[in-house]
Design a protein around this nucleic acid. Structure first.
Lengths: 142, 142
DNA sequence: TATTGTTATACTCTATAACTATA
DNA sequence: TATAGTTATAGAGTATAACAATA
């Protein structure tokens, strides 16, 4: 942003919050082109990688709490991208499954997410990107 | 966070959004001890550094839009930390000024913000912190 | 005409608490 | 007793549009 005051630009935590919000908004704006929001994209990505899984297990992987997960899966199911199937051994739970349409949308979503990331990080060298990624990974898993 | 899936942990943009949110929540939790939220702290910090300034000019420095600025200044004024004084040459505008109580609260806020940042970045070496800061600065000012 | 501050409004994201049906 | 999913709800945070007073 133009016009950020030096007294704030000196705070790493402030910058982190600011840049994080910018990243989220840019991702969301791109993903909206295929009808996904940030959380739908995350859930769909993990579901594709993991196969059938319960809502709450998926939520733990993506960082979405159980009650917020309901709305996320509702939206994905309404769009035909995910199915709630009966869980084979626990009648309380659902076995979530990505549909063929879900895989197709996810493929588009991946491209859009890659575009958004490229826009965001275009000023950084490959080395800077690598360092940033490693550092963020430490902070995220702490 | 424990349990973040590799397919998401591989996205720098996802990590940025996640860690940014974590930073914001931690700052907010600490600052709440002195009655400040994240935006009040930013506005108070810049106001202290800049002296009398209009609401919208302050908003541009902190990254708050004019309509959100109203509520932020309302809260600061209700707490006695800021005063809306008449602007000397423009009767539409206010000249915002930090009060002595505002300076005292800001001093506490600075300590709490420093604590929050230390908690957040404790896993990083001084060199990693410096690199992270420079990289975020590039991304924030782009 | 343009700008400052304001109000009303709405939308997103997130979290909490309570409920049901199962385990 | 505990857990999976659900519902209702509420609180941030943020943005938009329209307005009055003033430039």
């Amino acid at each position: 942003m133009p016009g950020m005051h030096p007294v704030l630009a000196g705070h790493t935590g402030f910058l982190l919050s600011r840049v994080g919000g910018k990243a989220r908004r840019r991702f969301a704006a791109r993903l909206a082109d295929v009808g996904l929001n940030f959380r739908m994209w995350g859930a769909l990505s993990v579901l594709d990688a993991e196969g059938p899984i319960t809502q709450q297990a998926l939520g733990r992987c993506v960082g979405i709490d159980p009650s917020s997960m309901v709305a996320t899966i509702d939206a994905l199911e309404a769009a035909g991208l995910v199915e709630r199937r009966p869980h084979p051994s626990d009648r309380r739970a659902h076995a979530l499954a990505i549909t063929p349409a879900g895989r197709a949308t996810l493929a588009d979503g991946r491209r859009l997410a890659a575009d958004a990331q490229e826009e965001l990080l275009s000023l950084l060298s490959a080395e800077e990107r690598g360092q940033l990624h490693q550092t963020l990974l430490k902070l995220a898993t702490a």
